Computed example of a mutant assay.
Amino acid sequence: MWGYMRKLAIGAALSGALALAGIAAPAASAATSTPDLKFTGVTVNNGKAIVVGTTKTVSVPVTYTLTRPVDVNIDGDTTFAGVILYRGTLKSLQNMVGPDDVPTCTTTATTDTTVTASCTEKIVIDPQGDLSEAADATTWKAGGLYSYTDGTSSDDFLSFNSGTAVWGNLGTAKLQRAAKLTADASPEPVAKGRTITVKGKLTRADWNAAAYKGYSGQQAVLQFRPASSTTYTTVKTITSGTGGALSTTVKASKSGYYRYVFAGTATTAATKAAGDYIKVN
């Protein structure tokens, strides 16, 4: 398997081909001209938003159809084809992630001139290595990547060329910051009719700081579920304050669970707190 770079240089200008680094020395000759490849039906993460926290890598499934000329062999060794995700434009890349391994493709149709295959791959996103700024929480574009190496190698001599082509605007995928939410109802136990204070905190992933930080100015819904029920109902809606702090009061009526729910924004995923039980005497 050949080595290929998962990330293109941020902000690099593309002049007909993208520069890749870390390509292993080739073992055989490969076609040096750009073949007529067609990437169609690109689906990223089953059409769902990609939610990324601060430490755990996220494996993103990608499916697509690849049609190539019958005389072009994509072997994953000296030639490679797959789908990447990028932010910005091909002329002005802001960020990019690609597959960690060679895609798996199964031939579905052939003609005298073309071969069509159904392909799957995994793009693994590492928040500490691939994401570094708030602007990464946005809609990314899918692109089709083709790379090749061509040359000879021996103990006495090494010579090779490499090249890359990318077809852009093949689809989109929303990438969001993961969020966390807490809820704490007190005092406990409490007499019926007395005041209960429900506090909490809304935070979201800050990729630059590799930590969760408070998300202020956001609406959160307080919900209640009686101990005898499995269904939550909405009590009221409040807005998070400094550092994402949440606090409101309600009158104690019956024992049960309080929680906060955040519906999410364009850049931040929805989340909900675990229910906090309070006993009412």
Rank of each mutant, 00 (worst) to 15 (best):
K213T: 15
I238R: 08
L90G: 15
G243R: 06
G41Q: 09
G163D: 15
A270S: 14
K201M: 12
A31E: 12
T114R: 13
G82I: 01
G256P: 05
K91E: 13
E188C: 01
T249W: 07
S216Q: 11
Y260S: 06
V198A: 04
T110G: 12
C105R: 03
A12T: 04
Y257P: 05
D126T: 05
D75N: 15
V44W: 13
G193Q: 00
I125Y: 09
G241D: 07
V166D: 05
T234F: 11
R177Y: 00
Q223F: 02
A274K: 06
V52P: 03
A28G: 08
A81Q: 03
A209D: 11
A17C: 07
P226K: 06
T172S: 15
Q219L: 07
M1Q: 08
Q128V: 11
A25L: 00
I196S: 04
D184T: 10
T79E: 11
T114N: 15
V221R: 09
G98F: 10
L158W: 04
V44P: 12
A24H: 02
I238W: 04
A142L: 10
W207E: 05
V97F: 07
D101R: 14
G11W: 02
T108Q: 08
V280Q: 09
P189F: 01
Q176N: 07
L20D: 07
A178T: 01
T265I: 02
A17L: 10
D136E: 09
S253N: 14
I196Q: 03
N281D: 11
Y232R: 03
T249A: 10
T139N: 07
